[in-house]
Each structure stands twice: as structure tokens, then as C-alpha cells.
Design a protein around this nucleic acid. Structure first.
Lengths: 337, 337
DNA sequence: TGGTATATTGCAATCGATTACATTATAACA
DNA sequence: TGTTATAATGTAATCGATTGCAATATACCA
């Protein structure tokens, strides 16, 4: 591999000059600069990023922890992250944890071993091992769309989940629905509680009775949506409206309802959450909450870089606006169902 | 940050011993080893990966070039890559190029600057800039699902695209279809040619006339599928069967056909390619070619690591088996359409 | 117990950059 | 032209690890 030495030889200057010519050209005379550039060109020299990182102490990369790469919603966030990071000269390390704590610890450890300067977490778990917990104090961490559990409060980029599900619930209540079902994702997270609270508060103020028995689910997947529908429809008071805590669940729910011969939305209304791309193109198009995932990803980079650079944060919680998209999967209640 | 020095101090040994205790424990006596471990524990020491990478010359990471992160098919490949990489102690750098050559060059440059040891390319473009082309000679590169254009032949992990589209075409011909439309993705790639050849050869041997005029498209997106359907249906001889070159296109095609009041598959059959997750859950479920994307991603890692480690490759082209999934978006021709 | 083989450990060079400090060249000015 | 301020360059230390070689400690054997 060609190193700076080779360039020195070709240009007849010292390593210091080469380094300066490339990083701080203004410190080097125009003549020498040209000579160095030509030597770089000739030799095909590329500075060894790792070596410079050792010296500067910055790896110029961020690591992103994803609970499950197959969820297309995360993709939009990651895309935003990747773009913003690149604009700032950072590269993105990807870690798919599959929800396994061991993997999380391992990947989060990258920040501790100088492989990454900061961590963006797309899940609610505390990503470090108990052993490393105290080390995590000094590590730049931001979470997106979820709040990280545990003692330490990390900055978070999120949606007003409470208000968003309120909107959804009101939307359905306006259509005269009285009997509801909920297919949730992971139930141990803060966003689950927020979303549930939003719904229940609407029910309470509208005088709609709701039993926790009508909450099913447990994972953010299409299959969970199918299973959830089967569970709900087996109950005594079948719901006429189903709130799904993400679009994958809603997709599965719609699919399963239709398979069972139940019409959407004529018999049962279904609403989702996230607005993944396909939601607009299924039959019927899904009523859902649009999260500005791309922008949220970008914001996460902005915030984590502020922490890295020691810029004080204006606030530790960035709340993004949501947008309820009323499409055709929800409609007036069917009294005969 | 705690460095090896701190551990030395606590354990009362030299840096060499600490390094060995951690990397080659068998070279250190049990007693000292324990002392070192305890010191590591106490100090919360984490070896600086970058520093060790400088010395060893290996970054232990791979960079993945994705043309467009919003295509869910890539996700499955990336997931396979990420898993396999992690199992081998490698981490994955993600680069979303958005098809922009400048971005590609920049990201591919990571391998040249020692930031990554190898490159996995999910597109057909030659990823290096003209300037770096000669440097690319010594760089471990593998492509997945696409063949990289240019003089140099890189190892490739791919499907037998020719045979796969043959199967699709035969499947439709068996249903007595005579009038076909194709909605393609990027038309300048090898896989496009392979897929087209497969279809045309079936047509030729079956005596079906086909005009290139019936090939529309140009991008692998849902919107392209919609546009493609509009283009095809505006033609004099409307097709009764449409071959889409990926599932996103097919999704858009099905959506648009239904929107136009054309039934799928009763009036028009639609087939896709890739088998993304949702394809099984739309209405109607999509007939498509299942690519073992996850396995292909894993294979890509295996191959690129072989190149990195100087293990001679058995073959430079790994062909994976495809699987045609006959679902409900395709059926017998409707003579009255 | 003495001597050799082997297991442990430390010293110091090294990886490929960056950068503080020292030195030399150039410019500016009286 | 001599002096001083400034620009340009070089020397060598440094970042935090790894590792070849040398030195020392222990084990083994006669």
C-alpha cells in the first residue's frame, strides 16, 4: 500500500508537509502544494483513515442499532441517518440486533472501542451490558421513535404518540364505532404506553367502554397482524374497528380479515401507524399516521453530532409533527356486523 | 479514555503482556492473566479498535453499496450480509448511493482508505472513479444480484435470471396468454438483458410475437409500476399478462390496474420478481420469483472474506436457485378482455 | 545441584498518520 | 542592507495498540 512516505519521496518533502497540503492546504505554499498533489496523483495515495483516526481520536462514524432490519419503516429512518451522516463526513455502521441483548451489547460496544463516535438507537432497550453501564455515561447516544429504558435519560427524537393515537381514535369514534380492538407491538415500551393512553383517554371522554382483553399482539409484524385478527374475531364482542400499532400489523390484519370474508372498511375499519410506502398501495389503502421518518433520522444525526462535538442541546426531546392520513381502510361503522 | 497503560499500571505488567493476555491468552501465565483481567474490569478498559487496526492493517469492516435503501428487497440481502459479517467478526458500513456516481466513488473510496477491507456492491455500476480505477485492481469486491459493468470481472453472487424469467413466461404461456407487456427496471444492466432474453426465447419457441414497443418502465419502483400499466393499457393491443421486473413494480401495476377497474388476474395477469415480504399479503397475492436474498447476502460475505484472506475462489460466479411462487395474481387468459 | 529447554515477561520498534515545536526561507520595512 | 515579522518546511514526539527480539523465570532432566 502506498503511504505518505511514498508521496514524500516523490514530492521531495517531509511527511508534515504532505499531511498539511492535504488537510490544511493554506499552510503550504502553492508551489509545494502542487508538487504534493501531483505526487499523490502519481502514487495513487490514499490517506489511511484509521491511522488518522487513532491520532485524532475520532472515527468519523456512527453506529445505528436496528431491532429488525426487515421492518421497512426503519429503512426510512436509516436512509435519513445515512444521508445526514454523509453530508457531515460521517459514515454509518449498521447493527441488526434481532432483539438479542447480546448482539446489542456487542454492537453498542463499538462506541466504547472507538470504532464509532456515537450511537443511534432505534429501539427502547438499554443497549449496553450491565458491565458497561457506567461507561455508557460518557457515550453520545440518541434514540429515535422509541425511548430508551433505564436510569439514564438519553436524548430522544420522537413523535407525539399520545396525540397521534388520539387522532386515530377520534377519527374512528366520529364514524360511530363503539367496539374496538387493538393489535399492539412490543408491550414493554414507552411508545406502547403513550399510544395506549391516547386511545384510552379518547374512549374515556367519549364514554366508550373498553376492556384490556381487547388488546392483543406482541410484535410488529405482518404475521402478528394476522394472528391478532384471529384472536380478536374469536371474542364475544367482535370489534368493528381495529387499531394496529404499526403498518405491518395493519397489513396482516387487512389481509386476514379479507381472507375471513370480512370486508374492510365496510364491516371492520383498520388503521395503522407509520405510513410505510406500500400502505398507500394496498387494497384498501391504509388509514395511518405518517411519521416523518426521514427527517427524524436526519435530526438524530444532528443531535448525536452535537453531543459528540460538545455543543449543548437546546432540548433533550425533539418532538416531530405527525400527520394522520385518512385513506380507505377506515369508514362508518356497520351496525349489522 | 482508559488505555492499555492504565491497565498496565493496575496489573503491574507491561503493555505487551496486557495485549497478549487479551488476544493470545495462552501466551500468558494463568496468574498474570487473572491479574490483567481484573485490571481490565476495574478500569473499564476497552481496546481501541482503530489503533489495533492501524497495526494489523485490517479494519474488520465491510462496506455495502446500496443503490436505494428504500427498496425492501435490498433489506433482505443486507440482513444476510450483516449477520454473516458479524459472525466473522466484521462490521458493516452502509452506503446509500441514490444512484449518484459521486456518492458511489466516495463510498467505494472507503476501501481505498483502509476504512473497510472489502466492498459488497448491490448495483451494476462500476463503483470507483476513473481516477481510482487502477487502484480497484487490488480491492476485494463482490456484487450481489447484479453484474458490475466494465473491463474487470468481479465475482458475482446471482440468480439465474434467464431461467427464472423463462419459468415466468412459460407459466403465463401455459395459461394461454398471447399478448404480453413488460415493465422493466433499469434497462442498462446485465440482469435486464438476461431476464429479457429468457422471456423472448420462450416467446420465440412458442411462436408468440412480441414487439419491443411493449417494454416500458425504467426504474424499480411502485410508481413505475403504475406508470407502466398506464402506458401499456394505452396501447392498441393491450396485454393480458404483464411481467414486472421486480415486486415493487408489480405492486404498483396491480394497484393501478385495479384502480382502472381491470381485474387481476381475471382480466390481466401480473407477475413480479424478488418475492419481497408484502407480496404474499397483497390482494391478490403476487406470483413471483423468490430470490434467496438472505442466503445470497451471506454468500457475498463468504466470498469477499475469501478474497480478503487470499483464499482462492472455486468459481467467480455463484448462482443461486430460484423458486417460482405461483400465487393468485396470475391465471388463465380472458379471451373477452 | 547444574545445565538445558521452555515458558513468561519486558523493551522498544512499528503501524501510518497528525502536530507541537524548532528551524529556515521569504517578505516587509526602515 | 540589516533587522524583524511572517510564511514555509522539517524534526521528532505522539496517538494506542501489536509484536520481534531479548531477557528472565521456571520446569525438567541427569
Amino acid at each position: 500500500m502506498t503511504t505518505v512516505k511514498e508521496v514524500c519521496r516523490l514530492a521531495g518533502v517531509s511527511t508534515a508537509t504532505v499531511s498539511r497540503a492535504l488537510k490544511n492546504p493554506e499552510l503550504v505554499s502553492a508551489k509545494t502544494r502542487e508538487r504534493v498533489f501531483k505526487a499523490v496523483q502519481e502514487s495513487g495515495y490514499r490517506p489511511n483513515m484509521l491511522a488518522s483516526s487513532v491520532k485524532t481520536g475520532k472515527s468519523n462514524s456512527l453506529v445505528v442499532l436496528v431491532p429488525n432490519l426487515s421492518n421497512p419503516f426503519f429503512l426510512r429512518i436509516i436512509q435519513g441517518i445515512e444521508q445526514a451522516a454523509h453530508e457531515q463526513g460521517y459514515s454509518v455502521l449498521l447493527g441488526d440486533t434481532q432483539g438479542e441483548p447480546a448482539r446489542e451489547h456487542e454492537i453498542a460496544g463499538m462506541v466504547l472501542s472507538n470504532r464509532a463516535d456515537g450511537l443511534i438507537h432505534l429501539d427502547h432497550s438499554f443497549p449496553f451490558s450491565a458491565n458497561d453501564a457506567h461507561l455508557a455515561e460518557r457515550v453520545p447516544v440518541v434514540s429515535v421513535c422509541e425511548r430508551i429504558m433505564g436510569d439514564k435519560e438519553f436524548p430522544v427524537i420522537e413523535l407525539d404518540n399520545y396525540a397521534a393515537t388520539r387522532s386515530l381514535a377520534k377519527h374512528l369514534v366520529n364514524y360511530e364505532h363503539q367496539k374496538f380492538g387493538i393489535i399492539a407491538g412490543q408491550k414493554d415500551s414507552q411508545i406502547h404506553l403513550d399510544r395506549l393512553a391516547g386511545i384510552k383517554d379518547v374512549f374515556a371522554s367519549e364514554g366508550i367502554s373498553f376492556d384490556d382483553d381487547m388488546i392483543v399482539g406482541g410484535a410488529y409484524s405482518i404475521e402478528m397482524g394476522q394472528q391478532g385478527v384471529r384472536d380478536l374475531m374469536a371474542k364475544d364482542n367482535r370489534p368493528t374497528a381495529i387499531l394496529c400499532f404499526n403498518d405491518d400489523i395493519a397489513l396482516g390484519a387487512v389481509f386476514e380479515l379479507k381472507r375471513m370474508g370480512i370486508r374492510v372498511p365496510q364491516d371492520v375499519s383498520v388503521v395503522g401507524f407509520d405510513n410505510i410506502k406500500v400502505s398507500a398501495f394496498i387494497d384498501p389503502p391504509l388509514t395511518t399516521i405518517d411519521q416523518p421518518a426521514h427527517e427524524m433520522g436526519r435530526k438524530a444525526v444532528e443531535v448525536v453530532l452535537q453531543i459528540i462535538n460538545g455543543v449543548p442541546l437546546k432540548r433533550s426531546r425533539e418532538i416531530f409533527p405527525y400527520n394522520m392520513l385518512e385513506r380507505e381502510s377506515s369508514g362508518p361503522v356497520n351496525p349489522d356486523f
